[in-house]
Design a protein around this nucleic acid. Structure first.
Length: 301
DNA sequence: AAGACGAAAGTGGTTGA
DNA sequence: TCAACAACTTTCGTCTT
């Protein structure tokens, strides 16, 4: 099936000129931000062409080409996509994903929520591509969204915000390092909106989020700044002490990790500035200083 | 000149009434 | 739902190396 793409005016959301008309899906989609501009556009033209009467008779099927009242608007067939928006053939991996999405769509199609789900899946798909989120995490997000839909949590909220929140929750659960700011920015939605959606999902779906261990960040920073193993070893020792003294609870694990590593570097006379550590984990030097002060005091260093 | 330190004011999230 | 609260950030002046 050939996709016909027609350039439109600028996207009302992000101002991007890359707004594309996707006739097969019956949608206008912004290639920059993934905004679906007119999702209920109806393609009334026949999906086939005939040049002779015989041809027309041969190609015509029963009923009108598309029917808006049908639950799926013929979507199970239109989801058979073999080329991307630029006319390039899809990779086998993406084709496989599309195939799964299609099969899944056919299965759920008889239910009233299918359209909602399809839109959400599109949203999650676009966001995942934009943020380079691995397929396994994306799958988790999809499952979260489905469960949210089952529990009627989407009612009264926008599909986009819940879908984005589901993706964020999936990232948190799988410890995929994407923060709220990045995801909110990619979805072009308010951080608050995503955050409240996230909390709703965690609460109502009873998702058990892993507690972020400073150790996780410790090794990460050490690797990035090429901290030698013995210094890292010392840092881990200090961290374990801190855990015993219960200094780490309720604090930003990144701050604790950063401070512990900084102390270890100083004790080993390894020159690393607070600033360098701070920027690798996206916190401020002040936080490192505060944590450091507390650690030094309570651990008698 | 760069890095460290800390005070003060502001922000966003959590908690408990 | 709202106010209080702790943690964290931003900003900025000062001190040290």
């Amino acid at each position: 099936m050939v996709q016909r793409l027609v350039e439109l005016a600028r996207c009302p959301e992000c101002g991007s000129p890359h707004v594309v008309r996707d006739e097969d899906m019956g949608e206008f989609v912004c290639n920059e931000c993934g905004l679906v501009i007119r999702e209920d556009m109806l393609n009334r033209s026949p999906e086939w062409r005939a040049f002779t009467l015989e041809e027309e008779r041969a190609k015509r099927r029963t009923g009108p080409p598309t029917d808006y009242a049908r639950y799926d608007k013929g979507l199970p067939t239109t989801m058979w996509i073999t080329h991307d928006a630029f006319g390039q053939p899809l990779s086998s991996k993406t084709r496989h994903q599309m195939w799964r999405l299609r099969r899944w769509q056919i299965r759920s199609g008889i239910y009233g929520k299918s359209r909602n789900l399809l839109k959400a899946m599109n949203m999650i798909q676009r966001l995942s591509e934009k943020l380079h989120i691995p397929p396994s995490v994306k799958k988790t997000a999809a499952i979260f969204y489905r469960r949210a839909l089952d529990k009627d949590l989407v009612r009264g909220r926008s599909i986009a915000s819940v879908a984005t929140a589901a993706l964020y929750a999936a990232c948190r659960l799988t410890e995929t390092p994407r923060n709220l700011a990045e995801i909110a920015e990619a979805s072009l939605r308010d951080k608050k909106e995503i955050a409240s959606g996230y909390r709703l999902l965690v609460r109502r779906l009873r998702i058990k989020m892993p507690i972020h261990d400073p150790l996780h960040y410790l090794t990460k920073i050490a690797e990035k700044l090429r901290i030698p193993g013995d210094v890292l070893g010392l840092a881990i020792k200090i961290l374990n002490e801190a855990k015993k003294e219960r200094i780490t609870i309720g604090k930003d694990p990144r701050g604790v990790a950063a401070a512990v590593l900084y102390i270890a570097c100083q004790l080993n006379e390894k020159e690393v500035t607070q600033q360098r550590i701070a920027e690798t984990v996206n916190i401020t030097e002040v936080t490192i200083r505060n944590r450091k002060k507390e650690l030094m005091r309570k651990l008698n260093i």
